[in-house]
Design a protein around this nucleic acid. Structure first.
Lengths: 184, 184
DNA sequence: GCAATTTACTTGACTAGTCATGTATTCAGG
DNA sequence: CCTGAATACATGACTAGTCAAGTAAATTGC
């Protein structure tokens, strides 16, 4: 097999190759994530929800009977509160979640997944698992492990150097350790 | 150094670990891309444009004096035409692009980057390069190469097996070779 | 050479993410 | 207590992505 120009260069129909390996990686990362987002959207869409709504439901299912206040959900999705409020509005309109002002702290609104939401997640479970496996199918087990390690290193930021990486720190700062979210 | 739970598990404050390595990779990929998107947005925002507007300008600069029809831009961004039309509307309102109905094919609207757009890109160039380098700083040169290879393999889909990857094909199909776009 | 498609957009209606504000609570001091 | 500040959201105004239609120009098939 002959060595060709990188895939991203072909995709972009590049006249001018990437000015740096970092820029190539940036483009490759964004484009790949975009492709994944579309693939997963195709999985949840038939059930009448969006990928983000699916994520909220996953988070709420994980929270169990205690439910979660709005900002807690926002934190796990790494998203601003306004967006989450509206996501919850739509989920509530579909009777997939339930909300109620908290008694202990009346500023909070506590959210729970509703029975219909649990059923919906159950219906999606196998399809989502297959979607993830299908997308990652091109990678061997070892590649998959490397892939996750590299992504984790990127999210950890320039400060968190890795075992075998002789890193040349040049960098733009990142949060010490990012917050949390289901999938997005 | 002791081995800990994976970074994504910590971030999600996971009670139930990932049901499969693929799902962990999916979450890690989406979250990392999200972090990158925010980092790059922070770079372009001070110049009064969004990341998507930046991408359109990059594409149009690459096209040079001939410009590009709207759908060509959409194709390179892997986006639907309606979104691109409106992106161009906003860029034109800022005098960063110029549009004109094509004489050869009057259905097409040809787009060019305007002088102000070129100047804006010039102002952003070094910051964007540093942004990319900064984000990728946690990876060594070798890691960076592996990373791009893995991303390329994912975008190529389950059909395009790689040299040293003994892949177990299970998969969800992808386009044979994706289209193109600058960065998104 | 003219009707039927196809192509290249544009427009409308949603969902979603972000920033700036506004509002109801809670909390911290004095 | 009671005032001022912080907290937890909600709302408004944009930008953006997607699907469904609509329009105008080009192309294709008799």
């Amino acid at each position: 097999m002959s060595r060709m120009r990188s895939a991203v260069q072909d995709e972009i129909q590049q006249r001018r190759p990437f000015s740096s390996p970092s820029e190539e990686a940036v483009v490759a990362l964004v484009r790949t994530a975009d492709l994944l987002r579309r693939a997963l959207t195709d999985v949840v869409e038939p059930q009448g929800i969006t990928l983000q709504q699916y994520n909220v439901l996953r988070i709420l299912r994980g929270a169990g009977a205690e439910g979660l206040p709005t900002l807690e959900i926002a934190g796990r999705m790494i998203e601003q509160a306004p967006g989450v409020t509206r996501l919850l509005d739509r989920l509530q309109a579909k009777s997939l979640v339930r909300r109620q002002r908290s008694a202990e702290d009346r500023r909070q609104i506590r959210c729970w997944i509703a029975p219909a939401g649990l059923e919906l997640l159950a219906r999606l479970q196998s399809a989502m698992q297959e979607g993830a496996r299908g997308f990652m199918a091109p990678l061997s087990e070892a590649d998959l492990a490397s892939f996750v390690r590299l992504l984790d290193a990127l999210r950890a930021g320039p400060s968190a150097l890795h075992s075998d990486s002789h890193v040349a720190v040049t960098g733009t700062g990142r949060a010490p350790v990012p917050q949390n979210k289901e999938m997005k």
